[in-house]
Amino acid sequence: CHSECLGNCSQPDDPTKCVACRNFYLDGRCVETCPPPYYHFQDWRCVNFSFCQDLHHKCKNSRRQGCHQYVIHNNKCIPECPSGYTMNSSNLLCTPCLGPCPKVCHLLEGEKTIDSVTSAQELRGCTVINGSLIINIRGGNNLAAELEANLGLIEEISGYLKIRRSYALVSLSFFRKLRLIRGETLEIGNYSFYALDNQNLRQLWDWSKHNLTITQGKLFFHYNPKLCLSEIHKMEEVSGTKGRQERNDIALKTNGDQASCENELLKFSYIRTSFDKILLRWEPYWPPDFRDLLGFMLFYKEAPYQNVTEFDGQDACGSNSWTVVDIDPPLRSNDPKSQNHPGWLMRGLKPWTQYAIFVKTLVTFSDERRTYGAKSDIIYVQTDATNPSVPLDPISVSNSSSQIILKWKPPSDPNGNITHYLVFWERQAEDSELFELDYCLKGLKLPSRTWSPPFESEDSQKHNQSEYEDSAGECCSCPKTDSQILKELEESSFRKTFEDYLHNVVFVPRKT
């Protein structure tokens, strides 16, 4: 048989008469490798580009789960590009990614509803959504962080984005990388972005840091009482949809009607710091009717980097990364020049730590249904340095008659930039024990000054392991946590139920 035959053949030295091919099969003959313009397919066939392209389009058009959109890589027609490569849609070739590779997620039936953290986790790592997304989240724990972890990498949506009755959302900033909504599939009414009845939605994105392009379709905003109209108009300008909307697409009466839409800028007039305090004062603000001013709200939190936005980490279910302080308005003076500047002394802060701070007014709604208010920009203030805590785990070892090696770990709280350490030492008198000992005694162990690591005695271990207080009263049991108490109650309830079950099964009433 021919060298490319495997198993047997019907005619000697003829690659077209093989029972099976050793390498690849091409047009009725066995070959060692697939010549151009053919590609290896499933490690035994040679196919042309049209064959591989037909497989790709067949799966793409069917949208069946589990099928493969075949691509070409290293002269092979394979189910998908290997790690580190992405497909070129024009020629199906796998090309190296520039940075992290995109991950295209194809949605069944063309859309997916995100109504819980669990459903959001199914899209973790996706960068391109081939379909439409509907966000409908009523509640949950730590929602802002969970949504950002699972949806934060999405850069492109081919269909539309719909935010509907998501009472738990305060902001859409968890879509931190969303840059493009194509609108290839539109919501009824030709809408590519749809926001309806979101009672706590206050911000779409921080438009000073976020760009969003909507290729096709219109915007729809109705019944978002805490979303200011200025935020919607800003989205029109940034996304390129200005002029597409009709009169009733953006409701003037049901958007922002319960919001404090600040239209003035508060400026800080005085800032002073110490290692654990920050004193702030800002310019006074009074609405047209000074009785509408209820006070100020001061927001602050630790910020290692200057990239904080107002609604980071917030949701309507209680999660809030900001510390909020309510401040009463100052006494009002008739003389504008003698107006008191409101302020606040922030206490209990960490030394040498940068804080993000902003302040906003708290006002009631005027009778004319106009909203007044003022808010400052987010500023960054760093507390002063102070003395560091003591170095940890000092170790001293003498390696000769004239040297001592000293080692330690950095302090747990540096409280500033540590530039150097101060080492103090003092000579001590020799131990009298060394002169009084009889060095001729056998088995004498000389006193040693070398360091030995501390260890816990058996008594201390027994005390720590004991669940009861000892007789001397030195140790006591740790208080039980809520989960331990709940577990004990469940076990007790189970024992009672099981005992009742045994009584009912074992003891049967005697027939009379």
Rank of each mutant, 00 (worst) to 15 (best):
L147R: 01
K267E: 02
L153K: 13
A259C: 14
P287A: 03
F193C: 03
T185N: 13
N387H: 13
G313K: 15
W282K: 00
K103P: 08
E122D: 07
A195R: 00
L227G: 00
Y372V: 13
G189Y: 15
T127A: 02
I188V: 14
F175N: 00
P342I: 11
S402I: 04
S260K: 05
N248E: 10
F220T: 14
C126E: 00
S333K: 09
R281A: 02
R138Q: 15
E310W: 06
H210Y: 15
E262S: 08
A144E: 14
V390S: 02
G189A: 12
S333R: 13
F358A: 15
K177L: 05
T371I: 14
A149Q: 14
E236I: 03
R347W: 14
P394C: 14
T361R: 05
K242F: 06
A120Y: 11
E264S: 09
D292V: 07
N190S: 08
G110Q: 13
I163L: 03
F193W: 04
E146S: 04
P342H: 12
P288G: 04
K301V: 05
C126I: 01
V390R: 14
T118K: 13
Q314A: 13
V117F: 14
Q354I: 15
F174G: 02
K209V: 15
T113L: 09
L147W: 01
D197S: 03
F220Y: 02
I134A: 08
S171K: 08
N198V: 04
K218V: 14
G313Y: 04
I250A: 08
F299Q: 07
L107M: 07
F175Y: 02
Q121R: 12
F174H: 07
L279T: 01
G152D: 01
S274A: 03
F220A: 07
R347T: 12
L331Y: 06
L143N: 14
G125H: 12
I129K: 00
G217C: 09
K277M: 08
L279S: 06
Y167L: 02
L108E: 04
D292L: 10
Y191W: 11
S166M: 15
W207Q: 04
N211Q: 14
T386A: 04
D257L: 13
G348T: 15
K407S: 05
I214R: 05
G240E: 06
F193G: 00
D312S: 09
S119E: 05
G110N: 06
N211D: 11
T383L: 01
N136V: 09
L362T: 05
D292Y: 07
D292E: 04
I154M: 14
I154N: 01
K103N: 03
G183A: 05
H233G: 02
W344C: 04
L151K: 00
T241N: 11
E184W: 12
N255Y: 04
R281F: 00
L161R: 00
N198W: 00
D289M: 02
G125F: 03
G373K: 03
M346V: 04
T323A: 12
I181S: 00
C317D: 15
N130S: 00
K112L: 15
G131I: 00
S171F: 06
N200F: 12
R369Q: 08
L331H: 10
K162F: 15
F296L: 04
N150R: 08
Y372K: 12
Y167I: 12
K218M: 13
P388I: 01
K162W: 13
L227F: 02
G139W: 06
G313L: 07
S119P: 04
Y305M: 14
S171G: 13
L178S: 00
F175C: 03
L280N: 00
V397K: 15
E236M: 06
L186Y: 09
Q354G: 14
L345T: 07
L349N: 00
L406V: 15
N340T: 13
N141P: 10
V128R: 14
L201Y: 00
S166C: 11
W344I: 04
P284K: 05
E237L: 13
A303Q: 13
I379G: 04
T185R: 12
S333Y: 02
P284R: 07
V359R: 00
K360W: 15
F175T: 01
Q121S: 08
F175L: 10
T113C: 15
L107I: 08
D249Q: 03
T273L: 05
Y160D: 01
K242E: 15
L227Q: 02
L161V: 08
N399D: 15
Y167C: 14
T386S: 11
K409H: 03
C228A: 06
L133M: 09
I405G: 12
T371D: 05
P410E: 14
E368N: 01
Q403Y: 15
R244V: 05
F275M: 10
K277Y: 12
K112Q: 05
L107S: 08
R332N: 03
L151W: 02
I135W: 11
G131H: 02
N307T: 06
L133E: 00
N142P: 12
H222I: 02
Y167F: 15
Y300V: 09
L294W: 11
W344K: 13
Q245W: 05
S338H: 05
T309R: 08
L201K: 00
T185V: 13
S319R: 08
K267N: 09
R244M: 14
E264T: 06
T323I: 02
S389C: 05
L265P: 12
S116H: 06
D367T: 10
N211K: 14
V104P: 06
P351Q: 05
D206A: 14
P342M: 12
G139P: 01
N198H: 00
Y223A: 04
K209N: 06
I357C: 15
D384F: 02
N211G: 10
Q203G: 15
V381M: 08
C317G: 13
R370H: 02
M297D: 11
R247V: 07
G240W: 14
S402F: 11
N307V: 13
V325K: 03
S400G: 07
D115Q: 05
D276A: 10
W286H: 04
P288M: 06
N141Y: 15
D206S: 06
K234F: 08
L406N: 04
S132P: 02
L143I: 15
T241R: 12
P411W: 01
N190M: 14
V325C: 14
N224H: 15
D328G: 04
V363H: 12
K253Q: 12
L349K: 01
L212Q: 06
T361S: 09
E310F: 04
G256F: 07
T185C: 01
Y285N: 09
G110R: 06
E264V: 01
V324I: 05
G159I: 00
P330L: 07
W322L: 02
L229T: 06
P351D: 02
S338L: 09
L169V: 11
I157T: 02
K267P: 09
H341L: 09
A195Q: 02
R244A: 04
N320S: 07
E302Y: 04
W322H: 05
T118M: 05
F174S: 08
L392C: 08
L153G: 08
S119N: 09
R138T: 05
Q258A: 04
D197R: 15
K162G: 11
V325R: 12
R165E: 07
Q121K: 13
L204R: 00
K103M: 03
C105N: 01
L169M: 06
V381A: 12
C228V: 10
S132Q: 02
V104N: 02
W344T: 04
E264Q: 12
Y300K: 02
S389P: 02
G318A: 02
